[in-house]
């Protein structure tokens, strides 16, 4: 501790009594630790806490950008409870998150297992596979929009050539539009899951496998009873990151379908954008955003609970 305290000793001109006393305060043992956390605390206050508190505050007002604010208590939340479009967008968001992240996990796990051995080819593949993740989601959306184009798109053309019925087009039919945008999300973010799980696989101990082989376990049994339980924390972290990110989905959908046809791809963030940015109803949009914030927090708490809970074989 004393060595640590030494690293933050501050030399100040004599006579600066107040500053000197601050210096003395920080130079004394445990207090010096505060110096290290001040930057992150300030960051959290200005860039996280203040916006969140302001968002909660403004959600109690009838406030359109450019007009005066009027305090209306919980009316925005009452209105939200009857806003069919927003409630529908919440359901769409849940379907999107569960489908996209679930598929990404399955593909990610499978591809990571395939890539989990060393060769020159594998090194190349591991690099190439990351390319979709490097795309800005909006750019990825625009590229896929062109591929999906019902009249001129390559995907539509080959699906029709193969005799697969796509109606008027994958992105313009209500039955397939959400599936189309989920597919793009899966394309873009599966590589991230692959890399996270691959890192987990590389860090697994060899001993449990050796013990399993000695006991006569088959490859399938090794995967089921050794690999999966050991990978559990890694998988949960991957799910945590992707679920919270998928809850905020906006750019891909905005670029490909704009939330249509009808309301079939209108997720919560898109509805909030329509209300807040297009209609400038900032107060109401803040109330809607708070719901999404609560959902994100609940998802985060759920996965962290699973991660640490002994009941579910957690790390604590």
């Amino acid at each position: 501790m004393s060595a640590l305290a030494c690293t933050v000793c501050i030399d100040l001109p004599k006579g600066w009594t107040v500053i000197s006393s601050v210096r003395d305060y920080f130079n004394t043992g445990k207090h010096s630790l505060y110096l290290f956390i001040i930057p992150i605390v300030l960051y959290l206050i200005f860039f996280f806490l203040y916006p969140v508190i302001y968002e909660i505050y403004i959600s109690f007002f009838d406030y359109s950008l450019g007009s005066p604010k009027t305090f209306i208590g919980l009316q925005n939340y009452v209105l939200m409870a009857h806003d069919v479009q927003f409630l529908h967008s919440l359901v769409t968001t849940v379907i999107f998150v569960v489908s996209a992240v679930g598929t990404e996990l399955l593909f990610g796990l499978g591809i990571a297992l395939l890539l989990n051995y060393e060769s020159r080819l594998m090194n190349v593949i591991r690099t190439v596979i990351l390319i979709p993740t490097v795309f800005t989601p909006l750019v990825a959306g625009l590229v896929w929009k062109a591929l999906y184009n019902p009249d001129l798109g390559v995907i539509s053309y080959y699906l029709r050539v193969l005799g697969i019925p796509i109606g008027r087009g994958l992105t313009v039919e209500r039955s397939t539009a959400l599936f189309s945008v989920i597919l793009v999300d899966v394309w873009e973010w599966t590589p991230l899951i692959v890399i996270i799980i691959l890192a987990g696989l590389k860090s697994l101990p060899r001993e449990p496998y050796e013990a399993g082989v000695i006991d006569g376990a088959s490859a399938r049994q090794l995967f089921r009873y050794v690999t999966l339980p050991l990978l559990r924390p890694t998988i949960i972290v991957a799910l945590l990151i992707r679920s919270m990110d998928a809850l905020k989905i906006f750019d891909i959908i905005w670029a490909i379908t704009g939330g249509g046809p009808g309301t079939s791809t209108t997720v919560a963030n898109l509805r909030i954008f329509q209300v807040g940015v297009q209609q400038l109803r900032i107060g109401y949009a803040s109330a809607l955003s708070n719901v999404l914030l609560v959902m994100s927090v609940l998802v985060g708490v759920f996965f962290i609970h699973i991660l640490y809970s002994k009941k579910y074989g957690g790390v604590r």
């Binding site: 039919e173 009808g262 329509q274």
Partner: peptide, 20 residues
């Protein structure tokens, strides 16, 4: 107008996609 257009933009689209 913008709010009217927003409403029509959804409802007309729902009609042509036979959602309504």
């Amino acid at each position: 107008y913008s709010r009217i257009q927003d409403i029509l933009g959804l409802r007309i689209n729902q009609a042509i996609t036979h959602e309504l």
